[in-house]
Simulated scan of single mutants.
Amino acid sequence: MFEAVDVVEGDGGPGTVLKLTFKTGSGFFYGKEKFTKVDHANMVKESEMVEGGILDIGFSLYRLRVEIKENPKDGSGSSCLLKLTIEYEVKEEFAANASLVTTEPLLGIMSVANEHLLKSS
């Protein structure tokens, strides 16, 4: 999905800005994402697209919230549950683009991360 992810400013906490360079053919060139909430204790991260990406096709807000929760069905503590929430606002004349909002690419990234973690443990 991404060709590169670069830290523009910040240290990973709130206010951190990432430049996401999308792979050729994705329909986007780049986007900048700003972390608006990083709560390590509750394992919650929120970010908003602040430039480029989906904002270039009529969205005025694109906010992603990632929450990691303990899996109540796993007494060993070796698995967790991931909750993804996307909030967005799209300008009326671009309403058809709302169908582009999906968690599928994010789930793909999480799946790759999961495979990496399983191999390295």
Rank of each mutant, 00 (worst) to 15 (best):
T36G: 09
T103S: 12
N71Q: 07
K119F: 13
K119M: 13
G31H: 02
P72F: 07
H116K: 15
L18Q: 09
T36S: 15
K45Y: 00
K73M: 13
E93V: 01
Y88C: 01
N42C: 02
L118P: 03
V101N: 10
P105Y: 03
S111V: 09
E46Y: 01
K37I: 08
I68R: 08
T102Y: 06
D74H: 03
F29R: 13
V50L: 12
G77S: 11
D39E: 04
N97E: 12
V50R: 01
S121H: 14
V112N: 08
E51F: 06
T103Q: 03
L117K: 10
F22M: 13
V5Y: 01
K19A: 05
T85D: 03
S121K: 13
T16D: 10
D11T: 13
G15Y: 06
F29P: 00
F22Q: 08
C80Q: 08
E67M: 12
V112C: 01
S111G: 13
D39H: 05
E70S: 15
E87Q: 14
A4T: 04
R63E: 06
E48A: 08
P105I: 07
E87H: 07
I86V: 15
F22G: 03
G10I: 02
L64A: 05
M110K: 03
M43D: 01
V101T: 07
E9K: 15
K83H: 14
L55Q: 11
M1A: 12
F28M: 07
L55W: 05
S121F: 13
D56S: 14
S120I: 02
V90I: 13
T36W: 11
K91H: 12
E93Y: 05
M49I: 13
E92Q: 08
G31M: 11
E115S: 11
E33R: 12
L64N: 11
I57S: 04
K32A: 07
M110W: 06
H116V: 04
K91V: 10
S79H: 06
E3C: 03
F59Y: 06
E46G: 02
S60L: 09
A98S: 15
G31L: 08
T85K: 01
V5H: 02
N114C: 07
C80P: 09
L20K: 02
D39W: 05
E48V: 13
Y88F: 15
T16K: 14
K69H: 14
D74A: 00
P14L: 01
I54C: 04
E87I: 02
S76F: 06
G52K: 09
P105L: 04
V17K: 11
G10A: 00
T103W: 01
V38N: 08
M43A: 10
L118I: 13
E48N: 05
E92P: 02
E33V: 12
E92S: 12
A113V: 15
G58I: 00
G27P: 07
N42H: 13
R65Q: 10
S79D: 09
E89Q: 09
V90A: 04
A98E: 12
K34D: 00
P72Y: 05
V101H: 06
S99E: 15
D11Y: 04
V17Q: 04
D6W: 00
Y88S: 10
G15F: 03
V7M: 11
G13L: 04
G75L: 07
S111R: 10
L82W: 13
N42D: 09
V38R: 11
D39V: 05
V101K: 08
T102V: 06
Y88T: 07
E33S: 15
M49E: 00
N97M: 03
